[in-house]
Nucleic acid binder design. Structure first.
Lengths: 145, 145
DNA sequence: TGATATTAATACCTTTTTATCCTTTTTACA
DNA sequence: TGTAAAAAGGATAAAAAGGTATTAATATCA
């Protein structure tokens, strides 16, 4: 496994895709998202259902429905998606899984990983969901394959 | 989940523990390791069995048997344990799970995560298994709780 | 030398988590 | 008001984590 769970990978790609397609209005269906990011459709449905409950994407049922992101959502940090799906285990906590690992009582890798965790966290806090729309539209960035 | 899988967390703690206890000679039993790092004993047995096959720890059966590390193993980089257990997904590959993500055809997070991956990799390549023996003996570092 | 106790290795089973698929409900519109 | 489009919800499958029991190896001692 990579840095994030598979679920989280799909979630991030899906949200970037939805953001790109709907930031100027409109909706996009699960089917189109699944095609656009090359993910299993029904699994993606479950993920989006959850993100929708948390307000990290918006949705509308029925014909002409679909997923979209509103103004506010565009500005939310990517870290919130990661946290919603994978929890905050990647930002805080011990690399060796110790409950009480800290400056005072550190595991052998504490200091080194503290730095790295902080970098990941600040990276994901300072980039927001709508950040990549332009690059995606221009084809500079990819979400598929 | 944190950076590593649970299996990998146990593996790292176990190897550090064995290293600390046996770098000057002697053996340590699964039971004592399990107690020393607070892990499920039989699950740990399976992990160590695998590491032993790969030569990342040494083992001896029978009375006075147990696990230990030899001179050569002490100098092997921690990255090898991570790679043996979790694979290299944390060092290479795409944060969003894309197969063909690269400089040429990058995902939105490619550049940012390339840096972070490289840091993790070089950190784990430059620290070796025996690196923490002193700190562990002195009680500066912890492997339990 | 043979019996025994000690220890890791192997095989198999249960539980939990993660990933995937199938069914139901909602809703716009003809 | 019937129908098709779409998301929401529920059931299932696969993988990871953890537990139980058995087997194999070996040092030691009678």
């Amino acid at each position: 496994m990579g840095i994030f769970s598979k679920t989280c990978e799909y979630a991030l790609r899906a949200v970037f895709f939805i953001s790109q397609k709907t930031s100027e209005g409109g909706r996009v269906s699960i089917k189109d998202i699944a095609i656009g990011i090359d993910s299993p459709e029904h699994f993606l449905a479950k993920i989006l259902q959850d993100l929708s409950k948390r307000g990290l994407v918006q949705s509308a049922k029925g014909p002409n429905g679909g997923f979209f992101v509103d103004e506010t959502t565009l500005k939310r940090p990517v870290a919130e998606i990661v946290e919603a799906v994978d929890g905050n285990g990647i930002f805080v906590g011990c690399a060796l899984g110790l409950k009480e690992c800290s400056e005072k009582d550190p595991c052998p890798l504490h200091n080194q990983f503290k730095t790295i965790r902080d970098e990941i966290h600040s990276l994901l806090r300072t980039t927001n969901i709508g950040n990549f729309n332009e690059e995606l539209i221009l084809g500079i960035n990819s979400l598929k394959r």
